[in-house]
Amino acid sequence: MPAGVTLGALGVLGFSYSLPATRLAVAGLDPWFVAFGRAFGAALLAIGYLVLSRAPLPTLAQVRRLVVVAVGIVIGFPLLTSLALTTQTSAHGAVVIAVLPMSTAIWAVLRASERPPLAFWLSSGAGLLAVLAFVATGGGFSGSLSVADLYLLVAVVLCGLGYAEGGALSRELGGARTVCWALVVSLPVTVPVSLYTADFSRATGVVWFSFAYVTVISMFLGFFAWYAGLAAGGVAKIGQIQLAQPVLTLMWSFLVLGEPVGWPALATAAVVVVCVVLTQRSRVVTPTTVAAGQPVR
């Protein structure tokens, strides 16, 4: 199995529990603290990593791109999903994950200069439709469009941007350093908001465990593998591995939160696996492959 696929799959596995963990965390903590506090905590881990690895400072041009990454994955997505999950279930939030791979692929074209072929778009679209059909008919999506749905839609757009920009930047900085510097760049925002919204009066052991998960895994270690995978295998192509994330998220919702998941989840998972395999067989042209003189299809 290619390294990019393996790393991307590890990242998706780590991210798949993020929505249930966020749902549990906001039950006892302010959603703004959950979003910004986890980024603050992850930034402390990032500083330790950067110091121990003796990472060189990013250039001014790279800092500008790191700000884009931070807006997408450090601030935008965590905040909007935290706000949405105060009134919606994590199963409902799986809608976000269903649309995210397509958003990432579109941003990969706009920000990472990648050129997926028609076969890629068809396979990706089929996987997207399969997951949307699942969540619409039995995976937790119900009711009319709400404010929470608007939060989720904007979260998808911003996260796709953060993935694409971060994946492209990881070709220069590496996956670990990209997310670490993005967290550090965000500190002027995450520190004051975290301190202002800190209220631990309703926090239980489960709440703290969930907050620790979204801090250490969702906001830190998961991105080590994810950005490395995007850089190695291409943002658009590896991003499609996330088509499997909604089903995994619903499985966690069943195991941890007791939300019902039946045979449609297994059927959808099979369809998604086929679509992911097809996207991985498509040849997506990246700046690296063009520079190497490989033919464009």
Rank of each mutant, 00 (worst) to 15 (best):
S170A: 14
F211W: 13
K237C: 12
G229M: 07
S218N: 12
T215I: 00
L187M: 14
F220A: 14
L248K: 00
A198V: 06
T249D: 12
F209P: 08
L158K: 04
V157S: 00
I241R: 07
A198C: 04
V156S: 08
L169E: 01
A176C: 08
S201Q: 05
A236K: 01
K237F: 07
P264G: 05
I238G: 05
Y227S: 04
G174S: 12
G222A: 02
G262I: 00
V193M: 10
G175C: 10
A228T: 11
S210Y: 05
A236Q: 06
L195M: 06
V261E: 11
S170Y: 00
S170C: 08
T249N: 14
G160R: 08
K237Q: 14
G222Y: 01
W226Q: 14
T190Q: 01
V235I: 10
Q242V: 13
A164W: 03
L221E: 06
G222V: 02
L173T: 09
P260D: 08
W208H: 10
L230F: 12
A203T: 10
G167K: 09
G262T: 04
E259L: 10
Q245H: 08
G262S: 09
D199W: 01
G222D: 01
W252C: 09
G222R: 00
F254T: 10
P192A: 00
L169V: 02
F209S: 10
F209A: 15
F220M: 13
A232L: 13
A228K: 05
V189M: 09
E172T: 15
R171F: 15
A267Y: 10
V154E: 03
R202N: 12
A267S: 12
F200S: 01
L152G: 01
S146A: 11
S186V: 00
V154K: 02
L250R: 06
I217T: 06
L187W: 03
G175V: 06
S170N: 02
S194E: 03
G174V: 13
F211M: 04
R202K: 13
Y151G: 00
Q240E: 11
V157W: 00
A155I: 02
F224E: 00
L230N: 09
L266D: 03
L183I: 12
F223K: 07
A265S: 10
Q240F: 03
G166E: 08
L173P: 05
Y163M: 12
P246M: 01
T178G: 13
F223P: 07
S194P: 06
E172H: 11
V206N: 09
A168F: 13
W263H: 12
S201I: 05
